[in-house]
Design a protein around this nucleic acid. Structure first.
Lengths: 242, 242
DNA sequence: CGGAAGCTTGAATATGCTCAACACGGGTGG
DNA sequence: CCACCCGTGTTGAGCATATTCAAGCTTCCG
């Protein structure tokens, strides 16, 4: 690992220079000097799909930024019923600030790359930098909006609409950095298994599978491989989201 | 309205002195002097149950603190299907900071009393006072946790568990300022109609009604009047929450 | 009182679940 | 190289839960 950098000059750290999310996530709020300070503590880490990064009641010891891949946040009932309560894409910030525990379990849905920051280092930076705190506030508000949007889906949409809504979400969030080009064709790999999708939508895997088949036979999507989907017309998909 | 106060001395404003939520909500982060500054802009307002305070896409012009009663936050689908995405009790802060629109419709679920603050005044205070910003961050995180908790309820619980969970929520949040005394008997008025409860739980009013009847015949609750409920044993209710 | 809104109850229906079998694909080992 | 296996996804049949539709009841207000 050759991520060592000369901390005596204040040029953008090598690591951050090549970071694709440099300007989009939390780091966009930082000056070059602050970035240097932060980079002394960060470490890029990779996790395979399925890896559990933290669980509902473990104390928080570090935060991270998603650089590549998708994380899922889940909660479980005592009897094992599970609900995915959030998905995080690059360049989302991961981790609950100002809290003792996460209250959610964090798992890698796909293979992921994270930029990890120890708890103390981040909290120090936040305390010193109002702009950073504000960024985190905005991310939190975005997550709240997303959670509320999914409450509508969970509570009031049919299985068909739920699956369409999920595909629409992925289609509009997965692309590396391209801005949403509505009405256009989109092609992507699902970052979640059928079981995860079911847990996200409050359905069973069988129902998810059946609804995917219906969307396929209706010509709304093409299932190239189990995980590999083509949406020829995003507007037609959106029309099925209820 | 005799809420005029002498702004030349910096004693706690009369209005705030008698405010029951003075130390619990956002204002708990303020010094006496800051409170005086803030109180120059605030105004207590009352709304009847059912009053709509703002809708999904109206711009935000003011914020508020809930002093009494319950607000409901809702979202609707084009075809009219509705979902309650949040409830706010005293001393919650109401309104999405750093945003152009609310993305939710805010309605008085019961008769409410609010302490209203114009947008500019609050944003100025937040900019000047990191402790206040932090309070708002904490409230936002709490709302996010609550939203995620309800996602589990919406996605993975049965109708019976949903209704029990709702009653448990109200039983533990409605009480004026008493801390949750688990295992004890609780008596309260439901701040929501059956229709609102249904929209909160992603059910129909008929299903809500039937499940309430089942809880009554099972002896878990007593329905004194339509809205007036007694829970003799909170633990028994909790056991039915899934 | 009378009317309307809110709530409850019942019967029939539909949506999504359960259980079960099968298909596909990718890796492992004979 | 093929057989086998295991994880993952699909499909089908029967069933259960919650919805829909419809009627009747209560409570609240004029």
């Amino acid at each position: 690992m050759t991520t060592r950098l000369d901390i005596h000059n204040s040029k953008t750290p090598n690591l951050c220079q090549s970071c694709e999310i440099r300007h989009k996530g939390m780091c966009g709020a930082l000056s070059t000097e602050e970035l240097v300070t932060l980079a002394r503590h960060t470490r890029q880490v990779r996790h395979d799909a399925g890896a559990q990064l933290s669980s509902e009641d473990t104390p928080i010891t570090s935060y991270a930024n998603v650089m590549r891949g998708v994380l899922k946040l889940t909660k479980v009932l005592e009897d094992g019923r599970q609900q995915v309560v959030g998905l995080q894409f690059a360049p989302d910030f991961v981790g609950r600030i100002y809290g003792q525990t996460n209250d959610v379990s964090v798992e890698a849905a796909s293979d992921v790359e994270l930029c990890r920051v120890p708890r103390a280092a981040l909290e120090q930076m936040v305390a010193d930098n109002p702009k950073l705190e504000r960024r985190l506030m905005e991310q939190t508000l975005r997550e709240l909006d997303e959670a509320r949007g999914w409450m509508v889906t969970l509570g009031r949409k049919t299985a068909a609409e739920k699956v369409a809504s999920f595909l629409h979400l992925i289609a509009t969030h997965i692309d590396p950095l391209g801005e949403t080009v509505d009405e256009a064709a989109v092609e992507f790999d699902l970052p979640l298994s059928r079981a995860d999708i079911a847990d996200f939508l409050g359905l069973t895997i069988e129902t998810v599978s059946r609804q995917m088949t219906k969307l396929r036979t209706a010509g709304v999507i093409t299932i190239v491989a189990n995980r590999h989907i083509v949406v020829p017309d995003l507007a037609r998909l959106k029309a099925r989201c209820g």
